[in-house]
Each structure stands twice: as structure tokens, then as C-alpha cells.
Design a protein around this nucleic acid. Structure first.
Lengths: 128, 128
DNA sequence: TTAAGTGTATTATATCACTTAATACACTTA
DNA sequence: TAAGTGTATTAAGTGATATAATACACTTAA
């Protein structure tokens, strides 16, 4: 589809999920990984839409959800800025990790597997 | 939405995912858990559609995918039957577990977490 | 032979989330 | 004042999903 580099992280889009969700996820994860400087400005709605070759409305939808999570702060006429709250970042990181964990545990249970089976899988999986 | 009991397992539908996918997943997982007798007959397309209050075409779509995975065998005029291959069941169980594991690992990496962090989460999570 | 119950196929329609497009307004900064 | 921001609105298009109605082929049992 298209890609765009923001500071040290890159946004890449495909057709597997809604575009606004991909933009949202990738920025959110980049913040969680600490790859975006707190308080820094991210591209304007129009600019990112242009680079990713998608509609400004789609970008805005992602930005608005970031703001709902308090990960971003938008200032009319100025732009959209990453939160300065280290606490918020840790919070969202924990939350995303917990969500992923719950999905995994549910899947294991659905397959009738116990904790130690899951642990064994995790030990044996190729990581890097 | 609706639910239906098949042998020892139950199908419940909601609005979070495509219906055919829920039917498919729930039967597939029940097989993987060993809750369905191998070689047994599952409800007819029309019967299950009636019980779940959904369209027969939707049920058929799920059944056809089960057949593609060789988890079921359909006999025209007779019905749809669970595979008798214990091997196929183990295969699909491994496959589903691997998929879930990969999703989890990807999520952890997206958050910049290493294997031991993931293991710690798994150790600490409430299981039952 | 017949009737009922199977899987399967086809065509049409409806719905909904997602996306795009075009435009306008409010605000900030240089 | 002009350019660049976020925001809002309305309209339209697209594709996956689901429903509806109908028909056909096959199997089984009465």
C-alpha cells in the first residue's frame, strides 16, 4: 500500500485490517516501545494522509482514538502531540500486553491446553 | 443470538465476528479438545441453521471449510461426519496452538518485550 | 416407487463497516 | 493576511457478510 517514516518508526499499510486501525496500532505500539519522543509533534492529518495515500478522514479517526486514550493531545491550529506522561505510556503498554496475553490464554483454553503446555510452547518458540 | 448443543459441546453466537467463522471455530475447537466423537454425525445444514436461527448458507460455509481442513467429511444425502483420523485432529490442534502462539509472540515483540517478560506474564496470569 | 431428509448451487437482495471525496469552519502562527 | 493546523458534515462507493428463495442430486426408509 504505502509507508511513511515518523522519527524512528515507520508506518506500513496493507489490506489485512482497517486502515485507521493499522495507523492507530502502529503509532500506539511505537509509543509503547519508547520509540517516539514524548511531547513531540506527529505529522498533521493532511500530511500523513498524503504520504500514506489514504483519506484524511481515515487518519483523523486514528488520531482521535489516540487522543481518547490520552496518548496524544491535539491542539487546534497547531497539530497533534505525543503525551508527555511517562505514566500513560506505561499504562498503555501494560494494557496492550494484558490484552495480548488474555487472547493467548483464551485460545489455549479453547484448545483444552493447560498452563504448563502453554509455557512449554513459549519456551520452544523461535523468538528473534 | 442463539445457541445449540451438539453432543457435549455448545455453539453460542454473538455479533463480534462473522457467524460462519464462529460456527467454524467452535466446532473446530471442540474437535481439537476431543469433545466430539470421531466419525460421529453433526447436525444437518438445515437443522443447525434452524436451531441457531441463521441462514443455511452460513452454516454451509462453515461446514465447507471444515471439509477443506479434512476435519469433516460430507456425504451427499447422508450428512456431515467428523473425521475418523486421530492424526488429523492432532494436526489441527497443533496448528491452532501454533497460530495462537505466533499472534502472542508478535504482540509481545510489537511492544518491545522479550521472551522472559512474556514468560513472566504467563506465569502470573490467572488461569482457571 | 415415493417421500423425507441430506448436501450443493445459484441468483438476487440487504446490511453494515470502512473508505473516499468535497467542502467548510475554527484556530494558531508567522 | 496567508498558510497550516484540527474538526465537522454530507454524499457516495466498495466489499464482506448474511439472508431469501429456489432448484437439483443423492440416500434412506416406508
Amino acid at each position: 500500500m504505502a509507508e511513511y517514516e515518523i522519527g524512528s518508526f515507520k508506518i506500513e499499510l496493507d489490506l489485512t485490517k482497517p486502515l485507521y486501525e493499522q495507523v492507530l496500532d502502529q503509532i500506539r505500539h511505537a509509543i509503547a516501545r519508547g520509540e517516539v519522543e514524548l511531547g513531540s509533534k506527529i505529522p498533521s492529518v493532511r500530511e500523513l494522509a498524503l504520504q500514506l495515500k489514504i483519506n484524511p478522514n481515515t487518519v483523523m479517526r486514528a488520531y482521535q482514538e489516540l487522543e481518547r486514550d490520552k496518548l496524544c493531545e491535539t491542539r487546534r491550529g497547531q497539530g497533534t502531540f505525543i503525551t508527555t506522561s511517562e505514566e500513560k505510556v506505561m499504562e498503555i503498554k501494560k494494557s496492550l500486553a494484558k490484552d495480548a496475553l488474555n487472547v493467548f490464554v483464551s485460545s489455549m483454553k479453547d484448545l483444552g491446553m493447560d498452563r504448563s503446555s502453554a509455557q512449554k510452547l513459549l519456551e520452544e518458540v523461535e523468538w528473534e
